[in-house]
Amino acid sequence: MLRQATRILSRPVFSNRLSVRALSTEVPATPSTDSTFIDSWKKVNPNMEPPKTPSSFMSPRPPTPSTIPSKITVNFVLPYASELATKEVDMVIIPATTGQMGVLPGHVPTIAELKPGILSVHEGNDVTKYFLSSGFAFIHANSVADIIAVEAVPVDRIDQNSVQKGLAEFTQKVNSASTDLEKAEAQIGVDVHSALNSALSG
Rank of each mutant, 00 (worst) to 15 (best):
T25M: 04
I111E: 14
V108I: 13
P50S: 13
T64G: 03
S55W: 08
S32Q: 08
P31K: 06
S24K: 09
T53V: 15
S66P: 03
Q100F: 08
S32F: 05
N45H: 11
T25N: 10
I118E: 07
A29C: 01
F136S: 05
M91S: 13
G117D: 04
V127R: 11
M101E: 07
T36M: 05
P105R: 05
F131P: 05
I8S: 09
T30L: 12
P60M: 09
S40G: 14
K87V: 03
S59H: 14
W41G: 04
T128P: 03
F138C: 00
V92H: 06
G106Y: 10
S35N: 12
I68V: 15
R11A: 08
H140S: 13
F14G: 01
R11P: 01
T110W: 05
P12R: 13
P63D: 14
A96M: 12
V103R: 00
T30P: 00
S19P: 02
Q4P: 00
E88A: 15
H122P: 00
A29F: 07
I68P: 03
R3T: 08
I94A: 09
N47M: 01
I111Y: 14
V13W: 01
T36N: 06
P31M: 11
T110E: 03
R17T: 01
K71T: 09
S120K: 11
S24E: 12
W41S: 03
T67H: 07
L104T: 03
Q4Y: 07
I94E: 01
I38N: 02
A137C: 12
I38T: 13
S134H: 10
F57V: 12
P50Y: 07
R11Y: 02
A96C: 09
P65Y: 02
S24G: 08
K115Y: 01
L119F: 12
V108A: 15
S59K: 15
I8N: 03
